[in-house]
Write a protein that binds this DNA or RNA. Structure first.
Lengths: 182, 182
DNA sequence: TTGTTTGTACAGTAAAAACTGTACAAAGAA
DNA sequence: TTCTTTGTACAGTTTTTACTGTACAAACAA
């Protein structure tokens, strides 16, 4: 077997593994392949390069590179004299993990917090109302307790995301060669 | 407005919020609605109950309750004299989060680790080969470094999942009323 | 044994998502 | 200004996923 061929095979294995697992990031295998291709390219790529490499339409390349950028897995690059947009993978995977975690969860936490706050307030008001049946009152007691549990849980999740963003997590689980006590 | 109606509205808001966010768990809004419905039911539910509540086919209920069970969001319950299978939501959301995190990532980490190990070994063998060009050798040096970075990253991710499973994370980010120093 | 009940496999259908090609706006070149 | 080039909006198509209804095996009842 030719040496370059052997290298490509070894690379392909990695690219395909990324493609098959990137659903954890909410992305399609195609986007994963795109990421993998950029990962092994030592120069930033244009959309036309990607179309060439992956045999897919430029429109697809455009939309999925945007998805990759939104999750901060990929960033724009600049190169003198090149008019086309250039993209490259972000080098720091630990930071990418933190960014992913934050982007994915923050919004959800916030939406839940808002809904819980509103419903909890409504339930408490209703509970104070004099004209409600004992049955309903019993139900409300249970539900209020449930929503207070939810509220505490999402408040915890929010602090968890903080711990990732502020890199406290790297003290608990240090990357190889990570300096202790930041 | 009737009291029970007001309660239902407050519950619906929560259920719909769960439904709209459960894609983070890789589940469909329907499964989220199912989860939410079970959450507010104070008794375990049968598949027929869910069909009734959600107006969907029993087959759907069966498949999505299985998906919920696989992620350990829901568990089987037992009740004397009831022949049908009963399901209820798992009470401990903190543990559910840990389980989710573990289930989602472990498999992916392992697949990546295997692929990286194999490709890294192939590349190193190739690098030792006498008959390869200087160009290829230079490429290999770069790729080997990249794969070593990947290897370290997934080893870190694996330790991160350990820290969740072993509840070390609860020392770093304590839930409300969580006893310190486990 | 035979008759019921219950959960799910499987095939078909409906709905959603991914992908393509065209067409065009924005930005640079001349 | 006009002529190119480049990225993306949008409409249409293909592919995938979600959902339904039927049919049946397993478990229990009589």
């Amino acid at each position: 077997m030719d040496g370059k061929e052997a290298l490509d095979k070894a690379r392909e294995r990695i690219i395909e593994t990324i493609a098959q697992n990137i659903h954890l990031y909410g992305l399609t295998p195609s986007a994963g392949r795109q990421y993998g291709t950029m990962f092994f390219h030592n120069e930033p790529l244009t959309l036309d390069d990607m179309t060439e490499e992956l045999g897919m339409s430029k429109t697809s390349m455009s939309t999925s590179v945007r998805a990759l950028s939104d999750l901060k897995l990929v960033e724009r690059a600049w190169k003198r004299g090149v008019r086309k947009d250039l993209y490259q993978v972000k080098e720091d995977w630990y930071q990418s993990f933190v960014d992913l975690f934050s982007i994915k969860w923050r919004r959800s936490i916030s939406l839940h917090a808002v809904a819980v706050k509103k419903s909890l307030s409504e339930m408490k008001d209703l509970y104070e109302n004099k004209d409600i049946s004992d049955d309903l009152k019993a139900m409300l007691e249970i539900d209020i307790e449930k929503l207070e549990y939810m509220r505490d849980y999402f408040e915890w999740l929010d602090r968890l995301v903080d711990a990732f963003e502020e890199h406290d997590i790297f003290n608990l689980v240090p990357p190889k060669d990570y300096p202790r006590n930041k």
